[in-house]
């Protein structure tokens, strides 16, 4: 009458994380298919967001919190919003969606099948792929550990590249402000 929870533990050895992975993976694949299958280009942007959210949850399941947040900040907060802005400003959304001819569908089908076959052939020989957080030391990808490794002064630290990149970004930002200011003065 009641489901035996101990047999569930055999199917999903990692418990909640395993179940969550399959749910998230299914949602990601479904939304990714919707992204390319939906006729309306703005709707496909919306499905793309869901797919990115799925990737974020996958990172969280692997205890890589900073990667997850970077995924949200860069892809959802940055890339997708600019994609949507571009769609809103340029495309003719009210018009009928274009449709492709049968031969093109056929060619696309063949190419994607061939691609998947090659991918599977390359991945199959790999044995014992480890994709869980359990193998990493505790807090390996937390903000503190990550920044200690990134900003270390020692031989394995990256303090110098980090500083150079940050100066470059600061210069870009100041350059953008300067250009915006000059445009106003010339008027």
């Amino acid at each position: 009458m009641f489901p035996d929870l101990s047999s569930l533990a055999n199917v999903f050895p990692l418990g909640g994380i395993d179940i969550a992975f399959y749910v998230v993976a299914f949602v990601m694949v479904a939304t990714a298919i919707c992204t390319v299958a939906v006729k309306n280009i703005l709707q496909s942007a919306v499905f793309l967001i869901f797919s990115f959210v799925g990737t974020t949850v996958l990172y969280l399941l692997l205890h890589a919190e900073f990667n997850a947040l970077a995924q949200i900040m860069v892809y959802i907060g940055g890339v997708v919003i600019f994609v949507i802005f571009t769609i809103l400003l340029t495309s003719h959304l009210g018009e009928d969606a274009f449709s492709t001819k049968i031969p093109r569908y056929f060619a696309a089908f063949i190419i994607s099948i061939a691609f998947v076959a090659i991918m599977v052939k390359c991945l199959l020989p790999a044995q014992g792929l480890v994709t869980t957080a359990a193998t990493a030391p505790e807090g390996f990808a937390s903000l503190k550990a990550l920044s200690v490794r990134l900003l270390g002064y020692g031989a394995d630290g990256f303090i110098l590249p980090f500083e150079i990149v940050s100066i470059l970004l600061l210069a870009t930002l100041i350059g953008a402000i300067t250009i915006a200011r000059r445009g106003k003065e010339e008027k």
């Binding site: 703005l42 900073f66 959802i76 907060g77 919003i81 802005f85």
Partner: peptide, 24 residues
Amino acid sequence: IDMGIPLIIAINGFGVLGILLGGW
């Protein structure tokens, strides 16, 4: 959680998204 402030900065982007989609 340790990522409090970065999380707040990250998910604020959803507000913009909702407004853009609703308006369009």
